[in-house]
Design a binder for these strands. Sequence first.
DNA 1: GCCAAACGGTTGCACGCGCAACTGTTCAGG
DNA 2: CCTGAACAGTTGCGCGTGCAACCGTTTGGC
Lengths: 155, 155
Amino acid sequence: MTVRHRAALRLAGFVPFRLNRLAAEVSQHLSAIYRARFALEIPEWRVIATVGQDDGCTAQHVADSTRMHKTRVSRAIAHLVRRRLIERVASAHDRRERQLRLTRAGRRMYAQLVPLALRRERALLACLSGPQRRGFIRGLDRLEEFFGLRKPRAG
Amino acid sequence: MTVRHRAALRLAGFVPFRLNRLAAEVSQHLSAIYRARFALEIPEWRVIATVGQDDGCTAQHVADSTRMHKTRVSRAIAHLVRRRLIERVASAHDRRERQLRLTRAGRRMYAQLVPLALRRERALLACLSGPQRRGFIRGLDRLEEFFGLRKPRAG
DNA sequence: GCCAAACGGTTGCACGCGCAACTGTTCAGG
DNA sequence: CCTGAACAGTTGCGCGTGCAACCGTTTGGC
């Protein structure tokens, strides 16, 4: 292969940088919506989303499946409890952990939140053709696998 | 199209979340290397990379092309100046701005940094086949275009 | 049973970040 | 000219975050 004479680094073409920048942009876009509509920050949004999908799970599970630091999870949960969107109930078989459940209000918010999120995702992916979208997702799959980001089975 | 009975939200399959998580992982990986090898944080690394590629550019240009907040850029530059890796020279035609140049030491670091970064990028993309890689990059292109992240021409 | 290690979860602390406000400079309009 | 808006860049402040240390609980080894 013909080595580019002393390979140069173009930041604009450097994939790790591009990934970061794109993710920041997407994130900022969405978090503005979460904040305006539900007064939720990203960590709180993720907790709601996780608990809404895995009712009765623990903070540890949230941390594992979102890859957030446990202190970030802890504080997000504290906020949500204070706002009476989720509640913590002592786990029967292990008194260290506490099971997380959406309250009535939490479920109501979750029900509004899900279709909105899915709509935004579709809007985002609408700039890709079918094959492009599949190709991109496929790449995402592989990269996640490479970094051990695939969920460790079960939820 | 058959609507999934009340479309559910799986966080693990939600593209904005996946993008964020992957970017964080890649970033963390790289920044650990930058820190260990060069004692550089990410903002400083980006400044070095930008100035190394666009010698004599301004802080404003760095902010534009990296999409970092100008205060973040300002502080990163301050660190690098203190470490004598870059220097600021008053611009001839506009006394508000200052042109950024790598010092001798800065160029030395840049010369080490570039091949290391490119090697890591190749290692990252090696988990994709040729077509997969092209498909993924193509998706990246389109999404950046969608968000107006394509460089505004010129450097 | 007991002790140490590992675990779930919380908190004090230091630090990096974005925001807003600031300084100094340039430029357009009257 | 001169005034005000726009710009390049810096800094004080408040806040969210990760790290490390902590508390209480569970579990393994002996």
